Lab assay of single mutants.
Amino acid sequence: MTYKLILNGKTLKGETTTEAVDAATAEKVFKQYANDNGSDGEWTYDDATKTFTVTE
């Protein structure tokens, strides 16, 4: 399945997607991506749209 990440950071904004077997796997990928790019904030997940959002 395709999962989407929306970044609403102070310095990093945008979207990216990943293919993953489940939401937990996608979350690990996205959290590593956000960490690698210095983005940290409040995470939410919408199962209906398969979208993670991180807001700083």
Rank of each mutant, 00 (worst) to 15 (best):
Met1Asn: 13
Met1Lys: 11
Thr2Trp: 12
Thr2Asn: 05
Tyr3Phe: 13
Lys4Phe: 12
Lys4Ile: 11
Lys4Ala: 04
Lys4His: 12
Leu5His: 01
Ile6Tyr: 06
Ile6His: 04
Leu7Arg: 02
Leu7Phe: 13
Leu7Pro: 00
Asn8Val: 14
Asn8Gly: 05
Gly9Pro: 04
Lys10Glu: 08
Leu12Glu: 08
Leu12Gln: 11
Leu12Ser: 11
Lys13Ile: 10
Lys13Phe: 10
Lys13Val: 10
Lys13Ala: 07
Gly14Cys: 15
Gly14Arg: 14
Gly14Ser: 13
Gly14Phe: 15
Glu15Phe: 14
Glu15Arg: 06
Thr16Trp: 15
Thr16Lys: 10
Thr16Asn: 05
Thr17Phe: 13
Thr17Leu: 07
Thr18Tyr: 10
Glu19Leu: 14
Glu19Thr: 14
Ala20Ile: 02
Val21Tyr: 11
Val21Leu: 12
Val21Gly: 08
Asp22Cys: 04
Asp22Ala: 03
Asp22Trp: 02
Asp22Pro: 00
Ala23Glu: 06
Ala23Ile: 08
Ala24Tyr: 09
Ala24Arg: 09
Ala24Gln: 11
Ala24Ile: 10
Thr25Trp: 07
Thr25Cys: 08
Thr25Val: 06
Thr25Leu: 06
Thr25Met: 10
Thr25Pro: 01
Thr25His: 12
Ala26Thr: 00
Ala26Cys: 01
Ala26Lys: 00
Glu27Ser: 06
Lys28Tyr: 08
Val29Tyr: 15
Val29Asp: 04
Val29Cys: 07
Phe30Asp: 00
Lys31Ser: 04
Lys31Tyr: 05
Gln32Ser: 07
Gln32Cys: 06
Gln32Pro: 02
Gln32Leu: 09
Gln32Glu: 08
Gln32Met: 09
Gln32Val: 08
Tyr33Cys: 04
Tyr33Ile: 07
Tyr33Leu: 06
Tyr33Thr: 03
Ala34Pro: 02
Ala34His: 03
Ala34Glu: 02
Asn35Gly: 09
Asn35Cys: 12
Asp36Gly: 06
Asp36Thr: 09
Asp36Cys: 11
Asp36Tyr: 09
Asp36Glu: 13
Asn37Asp: 04
Gly38Lys: 07
Gly38Pro: 03
Ser39Thr: 14
Ser39Gln: 14
Ser39Trp: 15
Ser39Glu: 11
Asp40Ala: 12
Asp40Glu: 12
Gly41Lys: 04
Gly41Ala: 05
Trp43Gln: 01
Trp43Thr: 00
Thr44Met: 07
Thr44Leu: 07
Thr44Lys: 08
Tyr45Val: 01
Tyr45Asp: 00
Asp47Pro: 14
Asp47Trp: 08
Asp47Lys: 07
Asp47His: 11
Ala48Glu: 12
Ala48Val: 10
Ala48His: 09
Thr49Lys: 06
Lys50Val: 02
Thr51Ile: 04
Thr51Trp: 01
Phe52Arg: 00
Phe52Ser: 00
Phe52Glu: 00
Phe52Met: 00
Thr53Leu: 05
Thr53Lys: 04
Thr53Tyr: 12
Val54Phe: 12
Val54His: 03
Val54Pro: 00
Thr55Phe: 08
